[in-house]
Design a protein around this nucleic acid. Sequence first.
RNA 1: CGGGAAGUAGCACAACUUGGCAGUGCGCGUGGUUUGGGACCAUGAGGUUGCAGGUUCAAAUCCUGUCUUCCCGACCA
Length: 474
Amino acid sequence: MANNKITSRDVDFAKWYTDVVRAASLADYSSVKGCIVIEPNGYAIWEKMQSILDKEFKKLGHVNVQMPLLIPESMLNKEKELVNGFAPEVAWVTIGGQKELDDKLCIRPTSETLFCDYYKDHVSSYKDLPKLYNQWCNVLRWEKETRPFLRSREFLWQEGHTIHSSKEEAMNETNQMMEVYYKFFHDYLAIPSIKGKKTEKEKFSGAEYTLTNEALMYNGVALQAATSHYFGQKFAEAYDVKFTNKNNELEYVYQTSWGCTTRMIGGLIMVHSDDYGLVLPPKIAPKQVVIVPIGDSEEVKTLSNSFKEQLLEKDIITYIDDSDKSPGFKFAEAEVNGIPVRIEIGERDLAKGTITIARRDTREKIEVSKDVDIVTYVSELLDTIQKDMYERAEKRRDELTFEAHTLDDMKKILETQPGFIHAMWCGDKECEEKIKEIKGCKSRCILEGAKSIDDKCVCCGKEAKYHVIWGIQY
RNA sequence: CGGGAAGUAGCACAACUUGGCAGUGCGCGUGGUUUGGGACCAUGAGGUUGCAGGUUCAAAUCCUGUCUUCCCGACCA
């Protein structure tokens, strides 16, 4: 059994999560309070996420920029809702330890203000629009309780900030980017997310509305995975970002922002991994195939190298573990690191004319002929694993999806097993707050166009306006 | 920010109650034998016991303060 003992997922989910992060060397705690070191294995996942998303963003016309790390207080204060929303988490800079500047500087918790400040001098006509900018960067929010990837004070993300000449165009952008995230979760992370709109209470400070992708973790706790905001002209008014429209009138721009963070790595872990360590969907795995040669005969070496070359040629990321560890150690290590496919090549099998292929997700071992067309076999297996992982995640989510018609229903569900709870809502904030008293259960999102499961509010019994998914969140 | 727990070698821990040479296992270096689910023998290196102060002839051990981490709540991506 494992040397690096991982706490069982069903015994203590929180401990299991941090055990997996440590065992797979994704991240470690640093001496800087609330900040983590993202280690090579973890950063490689982030790089893969970046490269996939960046390509998608660029396909849709977005370009990357880099804004300053610091925001002057005078600039930040222009948009009141944003300031109020972030005030407790903003970190301020002092010089030489003690001295405060006349116009204090904070470290960006998000960069709406910086983009607006830039845009106001770079837009004058409708011909300058839209501006479709994105930045990959770090931000800082002074969180009280931190957990690797899920919540740290400094974290990496991507923030898109676009401005448009019409409301419709900006709203389409907001919707389009939520779809980009949805597809990314579905196609690459093998996570079945649910799309919807945040309630007034849960939306981003300063936004007119927020669209969200909500994912459900293995333990039934929800994770807000990526959001897309429509700002209307709110920020444009606060920061005076105007343009001359086709009718030769001055008008404020229509704005959006959208982002996703390294938290997605935490989501990947909590949806797919097991008691043996990390399990990664092949399409996001930085290493897809490991070849473990057993013994050091010429035939073993030759076949290992040949397989590696063939697979690499087809862009299947493959490496040979030729360290002097024992085979058992290599198997266990590949498993804890979540390498989707392992090929074991040893003399015992070769004598029978076979090799062994193991898949990480099911831990199943398959004996195949050594003359197999390895590229076809492995690429099909990777596709199967990707598909099966999605289906398992979807099945788990459906098992943990419930319906509630009364507050009592909700209580009963949450007391036994948290999950996504479908329930109708009248739209009153008081009801939302009352529901929150049940184990901190919050609205995850409003399902648009979903069919009604009831005609009255789960809380007050008055006429229901929205079909909402509720849940306990990270 | 409240409630709980813990900080001793890279990691997991022992020694603390009753003050007296800082230890064990894993990992790491070297040499060798091995190789189908976390190999074995030999040998070696590795420490300001989180930090600061106090008590004492003497502190990992007792006292005070402080910092950090983890878990559970409240707040948030």
